[in-house]
């Protein structure tokens, strides 16, 4: 092995990690699931959703961006962190306009699955109910901003494949996902085969005409909780 290994401790269990990895990557390799929404394997982490926040030597940090080093002591699966993460997920639900029963992503949606995993029973924050723009100009892909959580995965995926189809616009609570066209997605060079078109964790950026191909009840998270794939890799502890 060309890279040095270091040892870190997650929830009391010692894990071997490769130097240069982030905490989240090392945990994934070791079969320890750290909840996350804006992280997508292979892309530069964005640090947007903060759901992957852990305690590193007692202090909060996003595990998707924090590099491992020898002896880090990390808290992940604790009641305190679960509550904080659940509140952030709740914020995302109340910020956007998410109607799970009517959404074609239901069952494949990482936001929905994360809410289940973290034990969110209802949204207790006031809904913002802001009108958000729909873009159906592209022949094969649409953007339903009602369901956008501003994770930036589409933007990072597009940049990684040498394009720049997506970006952000505005700031604060008025920030939204933007496209590289004057009048919408049709003017961009996005193709349905692009990774960017398939990077969305929710029902916001979807391919047209295939949304209901797999019936509800038989979808990815209908049968297994989010994170199971990682946890099944190598049971720890």
């Amino acid at each position: 092995m060309s890279k040095n290994t270091v040892n870190i401790i997650i929830d009391g269990v010692e894990i071997e990690a490769q130097e240069g990895q982030t905490i989240l990557q090392a945990a994934d390799d070791a079969g320890v699931y750290i909840p996350r929404l804006c992280y997508l394997k292979g892309l530069i982490p964005g640090g947007h959703c903060r759901v992957c926040t852990v305690k590193v030597n007692g202090r909060p940090a996003s595990s998707c961006t924090f590099p491992v080093s020898e002896g880090l002591v990390i808290e992940n699966d604790t009641e305190e962190l679960t509550t904080l993460r659940r509140t952030v997920v709740e914020m995302l639900f109340a910020e956007g306009n998410h109607v799970c029963p009517a959404c074609e992503a239901s069952g494949n949606c990482e936001l929905q699955a994360m809410a289940y995993r973290l034990g969110m029973l209802a949204v207790t924050l006031p809904f913002l109910r802001k009108p958000r723009e729909l873009d159906a100009t592209h022949p094969d892909v649409f953007i339903d901003r009602d369901r956008c959580i501003l994770c930036g995965r589409c933007a990072r995926a597009s940049e990684a494949e040498g394009k720049r189809v997506f970006g952000f616009e505005g700031r604060g609570i008025n920030k939204r996902i933007a496209v590289d066209g004057e009048h919408g997605l049709k003017e961009t060079d996005l193709k349905a085969a692009d990774r960017a078109a398939r990077a969305c964790p929710t029902g916001c950026l979807r391919l047209k005409r295939i949304g209901w191909k797999v019936p509800v009840g038989q979808r990815q998270y209908d049968t297994t909780p989010i994170g199971s794939d990682i946890e099944q890799k190598q049971p720890v502890g």
Partner: peptide, 11 residues
């Protein structure tokens, strides 16, 4: 708030 991260943007 710059809007980059969820807890600050929405919170």
């Amino acid at each position: 708030s710059c809007g980059w991260c969820a807890p600050c943007r929405a919170g």
